[in-house]
C-alpha cells in the first residue's frame, strides 16, 4: 500500500468511527446551549462554542453521524437506481435503452445544483426528500457508468451462452453481468459518495439542506459564518472537516483505481 493510500484509510477510518459513535462520544447534546457565544478553545470546550453557545465538538460529532449518514444513504440509493436501470438498459437494449439513455441525457443537461434548487423550491424540507433528490440526480452518472461497463460484458460469449440456455433476465444481470462489472463501480462509489457529501454540504450551507437545529457540517458553516469577520476560525472547523473527508476518500479511490489498473498477480 502506498503512503498516501494509508493516510486515506486512516482519515476514512477516523470519520467512520466518528459517524458510528458520534452521539455517544459527544460530551453535550446536539442542541444544548452550554456556554456563551463563540467562546475560545478551552478544556471544557476543546473546539469552543458556536453562534448560540453550543459546544462545537459535540455538534461536530453529532453532525458526523447525520451528514455522513445522509450522504451515504443518498449514494446507496443512487447506486441502486443507477445500477439497476443501467444494467437493464444494457441487457435489454433496443427501445428501453434508448428511452432511458435519452432521459438521462436530458437530466444531465441541467447542472445538478440548479435542478436541485428548482425542485427544492416546491418540496418540503425533510431529510427523506433530500436523500431522494440527491440520489435521483446523482444516479444519472451511475447509470452512464453501469450501462457502459455492462455493455462491454453483455457482448461476451458467456452471456450469449446464458441467453441461449434460456436464463431469465434476473440471472443474466445478477449472475453474469454484475460480478464482472463490479471493480470500476466500487471505485466510482467512493467518488459518488464525495459528490453526494459535498452536494449535501453545499445545500445545507445555502440553508436549503438539513434544517436547524439539527447539527450538519454545511449548516454549521452557515450558522457561524459571521464569526470570521471577528477573526475567529469557528466556521472553518466544520468546513475543514468536510474537506478532509473528501481528500481521504479520494486518496483511497486513487489507490483502488491504480491497483485495479495493474495486472493482477496470481
Amino acid at each position: 500500500m502506498t503512503p498516501s493510500a494509508a493516510i486515506g484509510f486512516v482519515i476514512v477510518g477516523v470519520y467512520a468511527l466518528a459517524a458510528l459513535l458520534g452521539p455517544w462520544l459527544a460530551p453535550y447534546g446536539e442542541a444544548e446551549i452550554v456556554a456563551d457565544v463563540w467562546e475560545p478553545f478551552s478544556a471544557a470546550h476543546p473546539l469552543g462554542t458556536d453562534n448560540l453557545g453550543r459546544d462545537m465538538l459535540s455538534r461536530l460529532l453529532w453532525g458526523a453521524t447525520r451528514t455522513i449518514g445522509v450522504a451515504l444513504a443518498a449514494t446507496m440509493l443512487s447506486f441502486l437506481i443507477g445500477m439497476s436501470l443501467g444494467y437493464l438498459a444494457a441487457v435489454v437494449g433496443g427501445w428501453l435503452d434508448q428511452l432511458l439513455s435519452r432521459a438521462v441525457d436530458a437530466l444531465m443537461a441541467i447542472p445538478t445544483l440548479i435542478f436541485a434548487l428548482v425542485v427544492l423550491a416546491v418540496l418540503p424540507p425533510s431529510v427523506t426528500i433530500l436523500v431522494l433528490v440527491i440520489a435521483v440526480l446523482d444516479s444519472t452518472r451511475v447509470f452512464r457508468l453501469a450501462r457502459a461497463v455492462a455493455m462491454d460484458v453483455v457482448v461476451m460469449d458467456f452471456v450469449e451462452v446464458a441467453r441461449l440456455r434460456g436464463e431469465r433476465l434476473g440471472w443474466i444481470v445478477f449472475r453474469e453481468v454484475l460480478p464482472n462489472t463490479l471493480p470500476p463501480l466500487i471505485a466510482e462509489f467512493g467518488l459518488r459518495f464525495c459528490f453526494a457529501f459535498l452536494f449535501l454540504s453545499s445545500l445545507s450551507f445555502l440553508g436549503l439542506g438539513i434544517q436547524p437545529p439539527a447539527a450538519d457540517w454545511g449548516g454549521m458553516v452557515r450558522d457561524n459564518a459571521n464569526a470570521i469577520s471577528f477573526g475567529l476560525v469557528v466556521p472553518l472547523i466544520p468546513a475543514a472537516a468536510i474537506a478532509l473527508l473528501t481528500i481521504g476518500v479520494n486518496l483511497v479511490v486513487d489507490w483502488q483505481l491504480e491497483r485495479s489498473a495493474r495486472p493482477r498477480r496470481t
Binding site: 459535498l198 454545511g218 458553516v221 470570521i228 477573526g231 474537506a243
Partner: peptide
C-alpha cells in the same frame, strides 16, 4: 489538484477571507 477538487467552495472562500481580509 486533488485538494482543490476535494474542498467545498465555501471552505476555500472563507479560508481566503480569513487570511486575506481578516488577518
Amino acid at each position: 489538484t486533488l485538494s482543490s477538487i476535494s474542498m467545498p467552495e465555501f471552505f476555500i472562500g472563507y479560508l481566503l477571507i480569513f487570511i486575506f481580509a481578516v488577518k
